[in-house]
Amino acid sequence: MNPVTWLRNGLGALVPRVWGKECPRGTPVPAPGPCADCDSVSLVDLAVRERARVSCLEDPGSAASIRLASAGVLPGTTVRLVQRRPVFVLRMGFSELALDREAASRVRVRREVGEPAR
């Protein structure tokens, strides 16, 4: 991990504890940046068969994130996690994309409950 990201993530995790800023449900405020969204979780936190909508990509300038974007993993895309092991597999529409944990953890999503897919 590059030191800036590390620092940002580290500070981001500290901030709520120090100043008591917390999201409504008690989860810590995510690191500042384009992904600061209380309701978003990382893709790796989803359970199998769970559906979610992509809210943003972490570190969007990196080669790995641009590759994700080229494959259609972009804010607004509805995804469903169909497999977690040995690698993560998401289903978008009728195509499936395999990602290792590192790539999958770059994707922040909002859980979608009972909403129909696009």
Partner: peptide, 29 residues
């Protein structure tokens, strides 16, 4: 842009594509 350009452009293209497809694709997932 406030975000890396390739990312911003990709997001915008996706939006434009979605707009084009509104009412074009009908799918029962």
């Amino acid at each position: 842009f406030g975000a890396p350009a390739p990312y911003r452009v990709a997001v915008e293209r996706q939006r434009a594509a979605e707009e084009l497809l509104r009412g074009v694709v009908e799918v029962a997932e």
